[in-house]
Design a protein around this nucleic acid. Structure first.
Lengths: 193, 193
DNA sequence: TGTACATCAGTGAACGCGCGTTCACTGATGTAC
DNA sequence: TGTACATCAGTGAACGCGCGTTCACTGATGTAC
């Protein structure tokens, strides 16, 4: 049942995007190859025509998740002033796991400590994603003197990642919302001072 | 080879404290029962005389980690003013994984997203630990009006957890230090304004 | 206090299971002429 | 363009492995009298 080149490429993309969602939702370890391939309407064995290993897929899926996230940030802030753009990015980031089925999730917040114990390839993806996120924000902190921008952006990212992580752990949506709201209040004070 | 009651109690404590360290260092999934028991100078089978399951141990070990952390915070800040105490807690929290072999690690930062996909018992431990940490700090933000204290403390905790998580992911110690330093700068500005 | 027996902490082999991965196979696609 | 053959995307059973857990066993501790 060989497929045409374009069908095969589509299949590969489908595996990556399915994996991307599942890994971010459930964590890396909790997603098995059978579940994953079934979710992409395939069977286990076919996987290894496209990828060398689960670890390689994890790295690609995480990289794709970052790309999707940044593309969304770009399009959501295209017509905004720097200050408005930062505000919007913060709102979107903090709200990422508040409505179910959201496909714009950040590996840093959703995988967290799993990124500490992983192979080098994924770690590089995570590090690059982190740097991109810091820079995205730093570039828009135009009300601050240049040398302060990276420092402040780095702290903003830490706050956002921590808040989303803790909101995900929170047992009820109300508690989650208050954690995110508290973080947002702090971050807003940085933008208006 | 039955042991006396006190010996058995010591063994149980040894398992919990060994587990506590290993889980925080390597993550919950990466620590196997055989490794864990061997590290406590025991063999696998003996485990189930003391605990019902790995999950139960994880919950107890995490709870013990929080207790140890808070006891350390208390003793480190006993003779300090509220403002100095907050500053000290922030410094200790942010530095937790900077020197190797530190036994005062926070499950929120070290396990992160693993706490999102776990059983209810551990989730309760994590939630309680989070609340304790927020309150510990809120109680010492005496320069702020009462209603603002919980909100600010919550944001401080989010920043600390995010910064430690991201510092752990960072590929080199220099990058880690700068992430932590940037977070600290932001948090200090909250205390002196 | 001394004796006989029950209890149970700890051992280490074994169990069942699910994981990531491999492999023989199928048949449509791609290629050579 | 048509034919013969090689390629390979996808299937699903099977493999090996390590996991959490169980269990028969040992022998020192605890208990009853």
């Amino acid at each position: 049942m060989r497929r045409s080149r374009s069908e095969a490429a589509q299949t590969r993309d489908r595996i990556v995007s399915t994996a991307s969602q599942m890994f971010l939702d459930k964590g890396l370890a909790a997603v098995g190859m059978r579940d994953l391939m079934a979710a992409a309407d395939l069977t286990q064995g076919g996987f290894y025509r496209h990828f060398q290993s689960k670890d390689q897929l994890i790295a690609e899926a995480s990289s794709a998740a970052f790309d999707r996230l940044f593309a969304m940030f770009e399009s959501e802030t295209a017509d905004k002033s720097p200050a408005q753009a930062v505000e919007r990015i913060i709102t979107l980031y903090l709200g990422q796991s508040q409505y179910e089925g959201n496909t714009y999730l950040c590996p840093l917040a959703m995988l967290g400590a799993e990124l500490t114990h992983c192979d080098q390839q994924l770690r590089e993806v995570a590090t690059t994603g982190h740097q991109r996120l810091v820079r995205l924000i730093a570039d828009r902190l135009t009300h601050l003197p240049r040398p302060k921008r990276m420092v402040t952006a780095s702290a903003i990212v830490s706050t956002m990642v921590g808040a989303v992580t803790l909101a995900n752990i929170a047992p009820d949506p109300a508690k989650a919302k208050s954690i995110l709201g508290d973080a947002k209040k702090l971050l807003r004070s940085l933008l208006t001072q």
